[in-house]
């Protein structure tokens, strides 16, 4: 289990990195390496070149502003998780990140890398979609912002071009009157989820005005389902859009069952969360 040979570049400017990517069709970005290096070691991926972005300046930020949280491409999961400000602005970040692998992996793996890796079993791509966030992308061709809804193309496949670097992810903050919750069931503590469900709920007074659920590991792309009109049976509605599958750890029926167990729970929890925040907003 050793990687096949590749050329290696450790640029110190973004321009240099982008030029290298543009010049080499088979090049890949190396961020935390917590997904890429296992693939290299098993020779399931054999890029001709790695462009190591770890020496690029100014990409390690976890910046919190009025509108939400901006996470730089070199911010490690652990750094995002450790930011109390980020957790305050968008509580779902911490709720989900604490389920991403074990702390040692989070010390190295980046949140942006996880999003670009586009694993339907990973928490953060789903979180970005549920929150309707976006990713800022750069290439020699210029910069663009890709909304989460347009980011995921298929299993382990994002819509980024091979020459593009995601420089930052944007997670919108949680509006007053909105609430979130997350739960997952994994075989072992720290494993990828058998099923994970997050909820994002918006309320006005006692009324739920919008409710959406995000799902991990029950379809082959990160999936979000609007259940505003199905508050009594969120799972039933969601399952019409999900594609639970059999694998060695769980049957499709069991996964569907877990959706039925978790969806109402997280929906209720997010609703409570929304109401408690609305309460706080009124009585600070």
């Amino acid at each position: 289990m050793k990687p096949a040979p590749f050329a290696y570049l450790r640029p110190s400017t973004l321009e240099e990195a982008l030029a290298a990517l543009a010049g080499e069709q088979g090049a890949k970005v190396l961020a935390g390496g917590q997904s890429l290096v296992p693939l290299l070691n098993m020779r399931l991926a054999a890029p001709s070149m790695l462009v190591d972005i770890n020496a690029l300046p100014d990409l390690g930020h976890v910046r919190v502003a009025e509108d939400g949280v901006r996470v730089g491409a070199l911010a490690r999961h652990a750094e995002v998780l450790a930011s109390a400000e980020a957790a305050h602005a968008q509580p779902l970040l911490g709720m989900a990140l604490s389920h991403v692998a074990h702390p040692t992996i989070r010390n190295r793996g980046t949140t942006v890398g996880s999003i670009v890796h586009a694993d339907a079993a990973a928490e953060m791509p789903m979180v970005l979609r549920l929150l309707e966030g976006s990713v800022d992308v750069a290439s020699v061709r210029g910069r663009r912002t890709v909304p989460a809804a347009e980011l995921f193309a298929g299993p382990l496949e994002s819509t980024l071009g091979h020459d593009e670097i995601a420089v930052q992810a944007f997670f919108p903050g949680l509006a007053p009157g909105a609430g979130v919750a997350f739960q997952e069931i994994a075989r072992r503590h720290g494993d990828y989820a058998l099923v994970g469900v997050a909820a994002h709920v918006e309320t006005e007074g006692d009324a739920v005005t919008r409710a959406r659920l995000g799902f991990v590991s029950v379809s082959d792309v990160p999936t979000v389902v609007d259940v505003t009109d199905a508050l009594d049976d969120p799972a039933g509605t969601a399952l019409t859009e999900l594609e639970p599958a059999d694998d060695i750890h769980a049957t499709a029926a069991y996964r569907a069952h877990l959706v039925r167990v978790l969806a109402p729970r997280v929906l209720a929890a997010a609703t409570d969360h929304a109401r408690s925040r609305a309460g706080e907003a009124i009585h600070p």
């Binding site: 190396l30 390496g33 190591d52 040692t104 992996i105 010390n107 190295r108």
Partner: peptide, 19 residues
């Protein structure tokens, strides 16, 4: 420990550990 934080040395490249 990489700058004091535990990390998997099997998932890092030596060339990437210079700093």
């Amino acid at each position: 420990l990489v700058d004091g934080a535990p990390m998997r040395s099997c998932l890092m490249l030596a060339v990437s550990a210079v700093d």
